[in-house]
Design a protein around this nucleic acid. Structure first.
Length: 486
RNA sequence: GGCCCAUUCGUCUAGUGGCCAAGGACGCUGGCCUCUCACGCCGGAAACAGGGGUUCAAUUCCCCUAUGGGCUACCA
């Protein structure tokens, strides 16, 4: 465990950052930071068809959003063709690789036959021992060829950090292609070359790469490279226990950002999916994660992404966050909703902080501030249906509401203590329980049956609008009862 | 089909041979607090896939089976 560890995350820019990828990135990052090593980023953009600039931007954006910073320059595979070509050349010269002239159709037929006969298929090795002259004449004819790696006898094994010694018999692998007919390198080759070239000391990636590892090792050996250590992480699954994908709802980090999750909560949650600190901590900051992180805490079992737990965690973050920190996020939402103008954010700062304070322990996601707090900005357009039936069911309610409105109006100081005192006084006059007045009042002022404490909310909104809303509700109740009676 | 990997409450996990009649968290659920909701607090139900070994002793070690997953491309 020196501080010379070099880790990497190698996404393909073919979409947004996937949750599984983000978790792999996180573990690499944590290990690098823990060991004071380097965390590198390599962009696997050799698939020209599917790679896009927009995806790259999106992935980098998500990484930054999560707080995962990287060291050194980005490595683009698309810019390293020369490196791969010379590696292939070297393998060809040493005899570790050979030209294969088999056509796609031939190979396809072979594979189908094997499948039909339920036999284990791998390349027949037809071109493996072609005579020198044959090869030369084919090349002269311009017959297209791919490059194949000559897989030797024996077995290939490595000591995976998580899975221990894992062994593959070479005969089950079969000579594999390392360069296409157009000369471009295939993934397995570029990975081997890049990991060596970048000096990666520990390859930590999804366990879907487990069976690729022996190939990578054979290539590295043939190229005379030092073999890195490996650690294959379990996958992230959806509720149906299949690999997390769009079908399960949100599979990319970006979507969670849009849904109103906080980066700290997402990172925290991802860290706990497949890793445990060894104690009972759940909520942990990035620094605490670095501090506690160890490869030993990694799980072997793939984990199901539990949205409910993420939501809970996010709620914890929201609740624990100082209101000032929430202000930019929440006010941006309010502006977007048309609750306030952008230039009002500063002048109404105290009011907005008040709203946040009253709402934050009731919200799990940022957008809920708008759903649960619209009434702070405008009078309710309608009343909760159940609430209406329960609290606006009596003409007397209108009288009481008006009585309380009058009482509120006459208050010199309109604060929690005075409004509560006024309410309790009115209740005594009518000889009813305090709840009998509080609930209708809340419904009148907010349109809802749930929310912050009535006296807090009412003082934040202010006397005038509150009194207006109460009188309007009283009127509404009267009108309704006339209709139903008449 | 072949190869490789995995298997503790519904879910995330603790547990590395005795401390486990299995602990925590989410969710579910009973209650307390209370003007409602939420928060918080106190309780509850809920798991070692099955079968063989090894051992004085297995959740922990080995084997088999079952189940799930991955790879088996001129994708990455």
């Amino acid at each position: 465990m020196t501080n010379n560890e070099r880790l990497r995350f190698a996404p393909s820019p073919t979409g947004d950052l996937h949750v599984g990828g983000a978790r792999a990135a996180l573990f690499n990052w944590l290990y690098a930071r823990k060991t004071q090593g380097k965390f590198l980023l390599r962009i696997e953009d050799t698939d020209r068809e599917r790679s896009t600039e927009a995806s790259l931007k999106s992935i980098l954006g998500s990484l930054r959003w999560l707080g995962l910073d990287w060291d050194e320059e980005l490595v683009f595979q698309s810019k390293r063709g020369e490196l791969y070509r010379s590696a292939v050349e070297k393998l060809l010269e040493s005899g570790a690789a050979y030209r294969c002239f088999c056509s796609k159709e031939e190979l396809e037929a072979e594979r189908e036959r094997a499948q039909r006969e339920k036999l284990d298929y791998h390349y027949s090795g037809k071109c493996r021992n072609l005579g020198k002259e044959t090869v030369e004449s084919y090349v002269r004819e311009g017959k297209p060829y791919t490059m194949r790696f000559r897989v030797g006898e024996g077995e290939t094994s490595f000591d995976d950090h998580l899975h221990g010694v894992t062994t593959f018999r070479n005969e089950t692998i079969g000579d594999f292609i390392i360069a296409r007919a157009d000369g471009s390198p295939v993934y397995i080759l570029s990975v081997a070359v890049d990991d060596a070239d970048m000096g990666i000391t520990l390859v930590m990636r999804g366990d879907d790469h487990l069976s690729n590892t022996p190939k990578q090792i054979m290539l590295m050996k043939a190229l005379g490279y030092e073999i890195p250590r490996f650690c294959h992480l379990p996958q992230v699954l959806g509720q149906d226990k299949h690999k997390l994908s769009k079908r399960h709802g949100a599979a990319s980090v970006l979507e969670y950002e849009k849904m109103g999750f906080l980066p700290g909560a997402v990172v925290n949650f991802l860290a706990l999916l497949g890793w445990a600190p060894g104690d009972d901590r759940e909520k942990m900051t990035l620094d605490e994660l670095i501090e506690a992180f160890s490869l030993d805490g990694l799980a072997k079992k793939s984990g199901v992404f539990d949205l409910q737990k993420l939501e809970w965690l996010n709620g914890q973050y929201l609740n624990d966050m100082p209101p000032e920190e929430l202000l930019p996020l929440v006010s941006a939402l309010f502006v977007e909703q048309g609750f306030i103008q952008k230039d009002e954010v500063d002048s109404r700062r105290d009011f907005l902080l008040g709203v946040i304070i009253q709402l934050k322990e009731r919200c799990r996601l940022i957008p809920e501030f708008a759903e649960k707090g619209a009434f702070f900005f405008r009078a309710p357009e309608s009343y909760d249906e159940k609430g209406e039936r329960k609290y606006f069911n009596d003409i007397e309610v209108a009288d009481r509401l008006e009585a309380l409105a009058d009482s509120f109006e006459s208050l010199e100081i309109f604060d929690e203590a005075s409004t509560e005192a006024a309410t309790r006084q009115v209740v005594v006059n009518y000889n009813i329980g305090v709840g009998k007045l509080i609930h209708p009042t809340r419904l009148a002022v907010t349109g809802m049956t749930t929310g912050p404490g009535l006296f807090e909310l009412v003082t934040l909104i202010g006397k005038k609008p509150v009194v207006d809303r109460m009188r309007r509700a009283a009127e509404y109740i009267r009108k309704n009862s006339e209709e139903t009676n008449g």
